[in-house]
Design a protein around this nucleic acid. Structure first.
Length: 422
RNA sequence: GUGGAUGUAGCUCAGUCGGCUAGAGCACCAGAUUGUGGCUCUGGGGGCCGUGGGUUCAAGUCCCAUCAUCCACCCCA
């Protein structure tokens, strides 16, 4: 049995890596234009970081972590998300004692043990941003504007932005009590899953798909109506700021993010039409996280975008064509005897900034021409007996089929004059 | 973790009710007189029929298991 890539992982081959480079550049440029700078944290961390930072009750910690003991029996975990590591780094380096807010972005693989499906992998990639040290609602809005801007630059304008407020720890606990009180009498009528949710995270009962559950809990109190004055004010300012910037959103009472550290603003962005895993990004405010991890009580907010899902969307909905980078010149050596001259020529062309390659298969001139055609090289330079004897090169323009005999400097100049105007 | 579909060449697939050395298209390689690409023609290489077991005189085909992929649930990115 041959060895294959592990379940839920895959190779990104050159034809696809150009797409990755394309979206990565858009993300970096966008984030940097908003004043974010890149941070790179380790791919694995002490398991404890995620247990405390993400939360014991979450799906991520309870069943999706890739954890292992290293040789000195420390429990380590391949990072399932990027926020907790950023918070850890912020604390570890005392960054919070400098200029605030701290605005970081990151880009890279995340790991979750989940059942693979289209748009869902065990090693997947996220682009994310985090801003620490400000609880201004306008920062919340700015973060969302950045998210939307990235989608716009990618040409994926047809999104749905869901927005909600999860309140602060005070009004959330308050609401939770009210909700439990409301549901309690109908507990028996809930589905199996919801009976569980009732115990662990009653807010999740609200977006159960089962009709019977909807019926059972109808008339339930709406969180929106129970936010404390501070949280209400915060949320309405976020909304006003989004409106003022022309960002349309859907207020969604049922949006309950899975990670424990969220507070106040929470959002999720969907691209309908890419299958079941339509959430391409999500995020929110996590004002308690840094303190929870042993740092000072400073607020934070961020989001993460799923790169695979964006790529999927680009393939399915995008209009963009990706041209593969092609060679400028292919050097055809007509006779084995002149291999050395051919090699010297490609090397010189490459030194002069020309993308050049040659054949190493010892193939016939005709076969090399054929191969040159496939590489879509603009020019072929022929190296044979006549060229070497008479000190010139034969340059063939593969588009016009014109051929000229040129000295080396003329050759380079004439290649450059064409490729530089491209 | 639950339910369903599917696994035959690098890719897309055909292969009847079990019955010859398992096929096609594309891709790849080579030729079509002498140093020249794309088109055409000819030829060639390449398959433990996902893997393991079972039924049978005989299994790509039937049965079981297992692995993987896909779809949905769940959850999210």
């Amino acid at each position: 049995m041959q060895v294959k890539a592990p379940r839920g992982t895959y190779d990104i081959l050159p034809q696809d890596s150009v797409k990755w480079q394309y979206i990565e550049k858009i993300m970096r440029d966008s984030a940097e234009s908003f004043g974010f700078r890149e941070i790179r944290t380790p791919l694995f961390e002490h398991s404890e970081l995620f247990q405390r930072g993400v939360g014991q009750g979450t799906d991520i910690v309870s069943k999706e972590m890739y954890s292992f003991n290293d040789r000195s029996r420390r429990s380590l975990t391949l990072r399932p998300e990027g926020t907790a590591p950023c918070a850890r780094a912020l604390i570890e380096h005392g960054i919070y004692s400098g200029v605030m807010p701290v605005k970081w972005y990151y880009l890279g693989p995340m790991f979750r043990y989940d059942r693979p499906q289209t748009g869902r992998y065990r090693q997947f990639h996220q682009f994310g941003v985090e801003a620490f040290g400000s609880n201004s609602p306008y920062l919340d809005a700015e973060i969302i504007i950045l998210l939307v801007e990235i989608l716009r630059r990618l040409g994926l304008d047809d999104y749905e932005l869901h927005l909600n407020s999860l309140g602060c720890s005070v009004c959330r606990d308050d609401y939770r009590q009210k909700l439990l009180q409301h549901i309690s009498p109908f507990k028996e009528q809930l589905c199996q899953d919801c009976q569980q949710r009732y115990m662990q995270n009653p807010l999740r009962v609200l977006d159960c798909k089962m009709e019977t559950c909807h019926q059972a809990i109808r008339g339930y109190p709406i969180f929106y109506d129970h936010l404390c004055p501070y949280c209400q004010e915060h949320y309405s300012r976020v909304q006003a700021a989004l409106q003022a910037n022309g960002v349309s959103y859907i207020h969604d009472n049922n949006l309950v993010r899975g990670l424990d550290y969220y507070s106040n603003t929470a959002f999720e962005i969907h691209l309908p039409g890419i299958g079941a895993q339509s959430a391409v990004g999500g995020g929110g405010r996590y004002d308690g996280l840094v303190k929870e991890l042993g740092g000072p009580d400073i607020p934070g907010i961020g989001f993460a975008l799923g790169m695979e899902r964006l790529l999927l969307a680009l393939d399915m909905l995008g209009k963009r064509e990706f041209s593969k980078p092609s060679l400028d010149v292919f050097v055809v050596v007509m006779n084995d005897a002149y291999e050395m001259q051919g090699l010297q020529l490609v090397s010189e062309l490459r030194r002069r900034g020309i993308r050049a390659d040659k054949d190493y298969g010892g193939r016939s001139g005709k076969a090399q021409m054929k191969y040159a055609g496939k590489t879509a090289a603009r020019f072929v330079v022929m190296v044979g007996e006549e060229e070497v004897e008479k000190h010139f090169w034969t340059l063939r323009d593969m588009q016009s089929k014109e051929q000229r005999q040129l000295g080396q400097e003329e050759l380079i100049d004439s290649i450059r004059s064409v490729i530089e105007t491209k």
